[in-house]
């Protein structure tokens, strides 16, 4: 499969604190790639560097073979990368409808946007019932669904997902990951950051493990899941 996104030797720092050093990874078109690791290992920073919310201090980021290092965040969205930011940032004061419209902020094709609202409803029927409701009044699971639906409104080629399982019941996690798989089967490539290792390895084809801002290990998800040593060393021995 051709490569959609690749990071080569990417480093990033918050002030003097090194957050990422020489991270290299590759996301093939059509795949779900997982990025795993402990709290503070640099998973979210990696996503934020890709979406240009955090500047990189070195290395190269290629999307469809072209560098996006010098792009602004809105240019990255326009190029086809949408992010579900960490921390469940729905626009609480706005309706579900406005949240979805904001996801399509850079698009001018009203008809296509309306189609994609319907597509979002097909993935997440509950959003249709909540369409006029203020997003802040949604349950945690519904907000997570809205976040994913909102990111899809940009019609991204690559979806960056940050901890979609955070704070959800096991049943809801199963449900959300089922939908994530469907979204992927429908043609969206996904880079997934997760704490829930079992679920993440289950749905991804390849995984990277970050430790202290560096890639400590990587390989096909199935073999990482079967490798007891890796599990114990990096992933809390699940």
């Amino acid at each position: 499969m051709p490569e959609l996104l690749s990071l080569r030797d990417v480093s990033a720092a918050y002030g003097r604190i090194q957050a990422l050093s020489h991270v290299s990874l590759s996301v093939p078109e059509g795949a779900i790639v997982a990025l795993l690791g402990a709290n503070g290992a640099g998973k979210s920073t990696t996503l934020n560097v890709i979406s240009r919310l955090v500047p990189q201090s070195g290395g190269e980021i290629l999307f469809r073979g072209a560098s996006i290092a010098a792009r602004a965040s809105h240019e990255v969205v326009r190029a086809g990368i949408a992010q579900v930011p960490e921390g469940r940032e729905v626009f609480r004061e706005m309706s579900v409808r406005e949240n979805l419209e904001l996801g399509a902020h850079l698009r001018r094709d009203a008809r296509g946007v309306a189609e994609d609202v319907e597509r979002a409803f097909a993935y997440f029927p509950v959003l249709r019932e909540r369409y006029r409701q203020r997003a802040g009044t949604l349950s945690g699971g519904e907000q997570q669904m809205l976040l994913i639906a909102r990111a899809l409104m940009a019609r991204p080629a690559l979806l960056l997902l940050d901890e979609p399982s955070l704070g959800l019941s096991p049943l809801l996690v199963q449900q959300i990951f089922g939908i994530i798989r469907r979204i992927n089967e429908d043609g969206t490539t996904i880079l997934l950051v997760e704490q829930n290792v079992g679920v993440a390895l289950g749905c991804s084809s390849y995984a990277y493990i970050l430790e202290n801002g560096e890639i400590a290990h990587h390989g096909p998800s199935a073999s990482l899941a079967a490798d007891g040593a890796v599990q114990n060393a990096y992933l809390g021995g699940h």
Binding site: S73, E89, F91, E98, H105, L106, R150
Partner: peptide, 17 residues
Amino acid sequence: RAFRAVRESDVAAMAMG
């Protein structure tokens, strides 16, 4: 709409492009 998005969260607004 962009005004209101920025009011609620810079980061989320940026993520919307």
